[in-house]
């Protein structure tokens, strides 16, 4: 600290604490709601402290889902989300690192053309090509499959760029030394490039897992069967338009379950999360 200004520092602390409270408040209220009976939600004053129905509510949604809502058990939907998030994260990392390796370490005809094709995907988020992409997936018979949920989201220019940037920082001499040592391109990739990319892969994994888990529009389009819903879209189906009979306690329990895995990933892998976030967007 440059000078001593206790008043200003106190103000900063107060501001930060206040904002943290504001941000945490909905989470807390959701948690409180998830520990009461459905009826308690409609009694005043509204509950501000946890009730005793926590285990019952969570067990109910995990095993049976929400009565009246057309969804699968939340356990099943969490599993779908997990499969989708993992497939997207791992798949994206795998295909991006391979194509980045080809682009950086080989000079081959059509390379620039390929590079631009990959680059263009930056400009085509799923929101702008909803119908035709849906049609492609439908024609391929991939509706209501894990492949349909994840494969179309696997191509990404950002991950390819990240790896490309990273590869360019690896000294040229490392590849030359490996060639003199007799390593083929694949051997060099496997023995040298992959181990050196570990932290980048971890950072990317955190970001992509969150990205995959939190997908909304795409699963909404490609899933029609309840047992293929992901938890993020499932929760919305639990709130029908006329909110007459919403079991808010169960909906909030589902919300807590839906946000816990990515939140845990951020908290437990914060270092990689920050790295991944700052670097993928550069």
């Amino acid at each position: 600290m440059i000078e001593h200004r206790p008043g200003f520092t106190f103000f900063c602390h107060a501001l930060l604490i206040a904002s943290i409270v504001v941000v945490a408040f909905p989470l807390y209220i959701a948690f409180v709601a998830s520990t009461h009976t459905a009826g308690r939600m409609f009694e005043f004053p509204l509950p501000l402290l946890p009730g005793g129905e926590m285990l019952h509510n969570y067990a109910t949604v995990l095993q049976h889902g929400v009565a009246g809502a057309s969804t699968a058990p939340v356990g099943r939907m969490m599993f779908n989300s997990l499969v989708m998030a993992l497939t997207i994260a791992i798949g994206k990392i795998a295909i991006s690192i391979l194509s980045a390796f080809a682009i950086v370490y080989f000079r081959f005809p059509l390379k620039n053309f390929f590079f631009w094709m990959i680059f263009i995907t930056l400009m085509l988020p799923v929101e702008v090509r909803i119908l035709p992409t849906y049609k492609v997936v439908a024609d391929l018979g991939l509706l209501d499959t894990y492949a349909g949920l994840s494969v179309p989201l696997i191509a990404s220019a950002t991950a390819t760029f990240l790896f490309r940037q990273f590869f360019l920082t690896i000294p040229d001499e490392l590849m030359e030394a490996a060639r003199i040592d007799g390593a083929s391109a694949l051997r060099f990739f496997w023995d040298i490039v992959l181990p050196l990319s570990k932290t980048n892969m971890a950072a990317l994994f955190v970001i992509l897992f969150i990205y995959g888990w939190n997908q909304y529009l795409w699963p909404l389009l490609v899933t029609t069967q309840e047992d293929m819903y992901t938890v993020v879209i499932g929760i919305k189906r639990m709130i029908p338009g006329g909110e007459s009979s919403v079991d808010w306690n169960l909906v909030m329990a589902t919300a807590m379950l839906a946000l816990t895995p990515p939140a845990l990933v951020v908290l437990l892998m914060q270092r990689w999360f920050v790295k991944g976030l700052v670097e993928t967007e550069k």
């Binding site: 000294p171 001499e173 490392l174 030359e176 030394a177 490996a178 003199i180 023995d191 040298i192 181990p195 050196l196």
Partner: peptide, 11 residues
Amino acid sequence: MVFQNYALYPH
């Protein structure tokens, strides 16, 4: 070959 920056495999 011995390189100027040594080119040792860091890992």
